Computed example of a mutant assay.
Amino acid sequence: MDAIIFTKDQFSDLMSKLDTIQNQISFKSDPKKETYLDNLEFLTLLKISKRTAQTWRDEGKISFSQVGSKIYYKLSDVEKLMQEHYNKAFKGR
């Protein structure tokens, strides 16, 4: 077994790098913050009309939050909507 000797500066540098790595790991493991889309962003993203968005809200196809007259959608709910209506390619004939 070999012994490795560090100078004080080398040890401090090594500890600093380990702290940086630990902070990066901790940051990446934090739960993802939810992203919200306002109504215009939602309409633009899905290329739908205001009326279609209203129909989807009325039918319960998409969840939403309303603050005053502004409507917001969770990006995860939009992704869920798209995944629920995903159709795999039909088998070729």
Results as ranks from 00 to 15, higher is better:
Leu75Val: 12
Lys61Phe: 02
Glu79Met: 03
Asp30Thr: 04
Asn39Phe: 02
Lys47Tyr: 10
Lys47Asp: 11
Ile62Met: 01
Lys80Cys: 09
Tyr86Gly: 01
Phe42Leu: 08
Lys70His: 07
Thr35Ala: 05
Leu75Tyr: 09
Phe90Arg: 11
Leu46Ala: 02
Ile48Lys: 12
Lys88Cys: 05
Leu40Met: 08
Arg57Ser: 13
His85Asp: 08
Lys61Trp: 01
Ile71Pro: 08
Gln83Asn: 07
Ser65Thr: 08
Thr55Gln: 13
Val67His: 08
Ile62Tyr: 05
His85Val: 06
Asn87Ser: 01
Asp30His: 03
Thr55Lys: 11
Ser63Phe: 00
Phe90Ala: 08
Arg57His: 05
Leu43Val: 06
Ala89Pro: 05
Asn87His: 09
Lys88Gln: 14
Lys28Thr: 13
Ala53Met: 08
Ser63Ile: 02
Asp58Val: 06
Leu40Tyr: 06
Met82Gln: 03
Ile71Gln: 09
Gln24Ser: 10
Lys88Arg: 12
Ser29Cys: 10
Ser29Gly: 06
Leu46Gly: 05
Lys33Met: 06
Gly60Tyr: 04
Leu43Tyr: 14
Thr35Gln: 15
Thr35Glu: 13
Lys33Gln: 11
Gln54Cys: 04
Glu41Tyr: 01
Gln24Asp: 14
Glu79Cys: 00
Glu79Asp: 10
Ala53Leu: 06
Ser65Val: 14
Arg51Phe: 04
Ser26Lys: 04
Ile48Ala: 10
Ile71Met: 05
Glu41Val: 07
Leu81Gln: 00
Ser26Asp: 14
Ser49Pro: 03
Leu81Lys: 01
Lys70Arg: 09
